[in-house]
Measured scan of single mutants.
Amino acid sequence: TETYTFDSEDQAEEFAQRAQKKGYTVEKRKENGKFKVRVE
């Protein structure tokens, strides 16, 4: 499980979609103005 942090929602969304296409489970959340994407 890895967590990635992005400054913009667009970046987080793009990353999450790519990860989902590769078959990963993706969980997105906003925390302290940053966008976190957890991938497993």
Rank of each mutant, 00 (worst) to 15 (best):
E9L: 08
R38D: 11
G33C: 04
K21Y: 08
F6G: 00
K36E: 12
V26E: 02
K21I: 09
G33P: 01
T1G: 14
E2T: 14
R38W: 10
T5I: 13
V39P: 01
A16M: 13
E14M: 09
G33D: 07
K34S: 06
T5W: 15
R38A: 08
V26A: 06
K28T: 14
K21S: 12
Q11S: 08
A19I: 09
K28N: 05
V39T: 04
A12Q: 05
R38L: 14
T5G: 03
Q11R: 08
E13L: 08
A19P: 00
E40V: 14
E31M: 05
E27F: 12
R29K: 12
V39Q: 02
Y4T: 03
R29F: 15
S8L: 08
K36W: 12
V39K: 01
K30L: 12
S8A: 07
R38N: 08
E13K: 05
D7C: 11
K34V: 11
Q17A: 12
S8R: 10
K22A: 14
T25W: 12
D7I: 06
K28W: 10
E31T: 04
E9R: 05
D10I: 11
F35E: 00
T1M: 11
T5Q: 07
V26K: 02
Q20Y: 09
D7S: 07
K28R: 11
D7H: 06
Q20V: 13
F6R: 00
E13S: 07
D10V: 10
E27Y: 13
R18S: 12
Y4S: 02
K28I: 15
E27T: 14
F15L: 03
K34F: 10
T1V: 13
F15I: 02
V37H: 00
K34Q: 10
Y4F: 12
T25L: 13
K28A: 06
K22T: 06
E40F: 15
K30Y: 15
T1C: 11
A19M: 15
D7E: 10
Q17F: 09
E2H: 15
K22G: 10
F6W: 02
E31A: 05
N32L: 06
Q17E: 12
N32C: 07
A19Q: 11
E9P: 05
Q17G: 06
N32D: 12
F6V: 00
N32K: 07
K30D: 06
E40W: 15
E9Y: 09
N32Y: 05
K30I: 12
A19H: 08
E40N: 12
E13W: 07
T5L: 09
F15N: 01
T25F: 12
Q20C: 07
R18P: 01
A19K: 06
K36I: 15
S8P: 00
T1D: 11
A16R: 04
Q20D: 05
R29L: 15
Q20E: 12
A12S: 04
K34E: 06
R29P: 01
T25V: 12
K34L: 10
G23Q: 02
K21L: 13
R18K: 11
E31Y: 04
F35Q: 01
K22Q: 14
A19R: 04
E9V: 05
G33Q: 04
K30A: 11
E9G: 04
A12Y: 02
R38H: 10
S8H: 09
V26G: 01
E27A: 08
K36Q: 14
T1K: 08
D7Y: 06
